[in-house]
Amino acid sequence: MSSEEKHKITRREFIRKGMQLSILIGLGSIAGGLITKTISEKTVWQIDTKKCTQCGRCATSCIKKPSAVKCFHAYDMCGYCDLCGGYFKPGTKDLTTAAENQLCPTSALKRKFIEEPFFEYEIDKELCIGCGKCVKGCGAFGNGSLQLQVSQDLCDNCNECSIARDCPSNAFSRVLNSTSYLMLGLRDSNKWKNKL
């Protein structure tokens, strides 16, 4: 009986050791197999403005309220137009900042007179909800200097972005931390660099 017991124990022990070893090997091979595919940088979510169709889902699909997607303004591309397609509702007659003329639902886009005939447009990030209405207007009638981007300070960087899944035009992708903005008109040499 006792020898049988012992035998049993050793057999059990053998299985245990074998399993331990195979788990170690398994973990090792997963880690080893993926080591070539790892990147030391983390990835963040960003919108490819070239693919974005301004469907308006960024405002509603983000788990954050208001959304971490904001309108960004590439001043380098802006024409400083008086009649700004991103600022005014289509068909606006008098170009004033009155509420009935503004395209932005939260009045987040500010208009400032610079000199004849130029106006500067600025986004109040606190108010912007990322609906993309101005972006659509600017892209359709202007230079496309207003663009939707994920504001990385606000983004929670979910493992699976809920906007990315709802995005109809596949504009969301994981990008490297060091290239966290994909908008046009950002100076190449100065795209945000990670300075720890």
Binding site: Y75, N157, S180, W192, N194, K195
Partner: peptide, 8 residues
Amino acid sequence: PETITPAP
């Protein structure tokens, strides 16, 4: 003005 892109 400069375009400000906040860091992650």
